[in-house]
C-alpha cells in the first residue's frame, strides 16, 4: 500500500536535461511528506510524477498497489477524481462559479454533487467560509481563495493529497492556517499528504522531509 516510486527518471527536451535521476521512494499510507530543495531541484516535477499529472521518462509509480503509469486514461481520470486531491500555489478557482460550485466541481464529474453537498458545506464551515458560500472567487481574499481551493481538493475525501507550494502566495497568518488544515488531514483523517515547500519551518511540520538537489534525493 501507499505510494511506491521505483527508479524514476525524468528528462526534458533535446539534448535531454535530466530533472529527476533514479529516484526511488516508499511513502506509507497516512504519512505527511514534505519535499524540499532549491528552486530547480526537481521537487515540483517529482510531485507531478507521483501524482500522475506528469509521466516519468522511465520508472514506475505504484499507488495502492496499482501502477499508475500503466493505467488506461479512463481509469486514471476516475482514480484522480476519487482518490487524489490537488492544491497548487495558485488557487485555480473558476471565476464564473460561486464558492460552493467551485468546491463541488470534482463531484460534478460523476454527478455526485447532491451527495457531496453536505460535506462541501461542512468544509466551508470548517474553513471559516460559511458566509461566503455564494460568493465568487474574485470577492474573496487571497487566504480565503486558497482555503476554498483546499476545500475543493478534499470534497471527494481523497486518500492522497498533493500540495505544490500551497502557502507560496500567502501571508504568514493565512499560510499557517493552511498548514494547520494539511496537518489535520494527515493526523486526524489519515490522508497521505505530499507537500512541496521551500519554507523550512513548514517543512519541519511533516512526518518526513525529503530533500532534493539536482534531481536526486539527498539524505
Amino acid at each position: 500500500m501507499g505510494i511506491i516510486a521505483k527508479n524514476i527518471n525524468k528528462s526534458f527536451g533535446t539534448p535531454p536535461v535530466h530533472v529527476l535521476s533514479d529516484i526511488s521512494l516508499d511513502i506509507k499510507d497516512g504519512e505527511f511528506i514534505s519535499l524540499t530543495g532549491r528552486s530547480g531541484a526537481g521537487k515540483s516535477t517529482l510531485l507531478y510524477v507521483l501524482s500522475s499529472l506528469d509521466d516519468p521518462t522511465s520508472g514506475s509509480v505504484e499507488i495502492a498497489d496499482r501502477d499508475i503509469t500503466q493505467m488506461s486514461s479512463d481509469e486514471l481520470y476516475r482514480f484522480r477524481n476519487q482518490k487524489m486531491g490537488f492544491v497548487f500555489q495558485f488557487h485555480y478557482l473558476i471565476a464564473e462559479l460561486t464558492a460552493i460550485q467551485n468546491i463541488l466541481l470534482p463531484a460534478m464529474k460523476f454527478n455526485e454533487e447532491v451527495i457531496r453537498r453536505p460535506r462541501a458545506e461542512m468544509l466551508l464551515e470548517q474553513f471559516g467560509l460559511k458566509e461566503k458560500i455564494n460568493r465568487y472567487p474574485r470577492q474573496l481574499s487571497g487566504g480565503e481563495q486558497q482555503r476554498l481551493a483546499i476545500a475543493r481538493s478534499l470534497v471527494m475525501e481523497p486518500k492522497y493529497l498533493f500540495a505544490d507550494e500551497p502557502t507560496g502566495s500567502l501571508d504568514t497568518t493565512n499560510a499557517e492556517s493552511v498548514m494547520n488544515i494539511l496537518q489535520d488531514c494527515s493526523r486526524k483523517q489519515g490522508m497521505t499528504v505530499i507537500m512541496v515547500t521551500h519554507d523550512p519551518d513548514f517543512s519541519k511540520l511533516a512526518d518526513r522531509q525529503i530533500r532534493l538537489a539536482d534531481g536526486r534525493i539527498v539524505p
Partner: peptide, 11 residues
C-alpha cells in the same frame, strides 16, 4: 480552468 479540471479528473 482546463488545467484544474484535468487535475480534478475531467477527461
Amino acid at each position: 480552468d482546463i488545467a484544474i479540471l484535468r487535475a480534478l479528473g475531467y477527461d
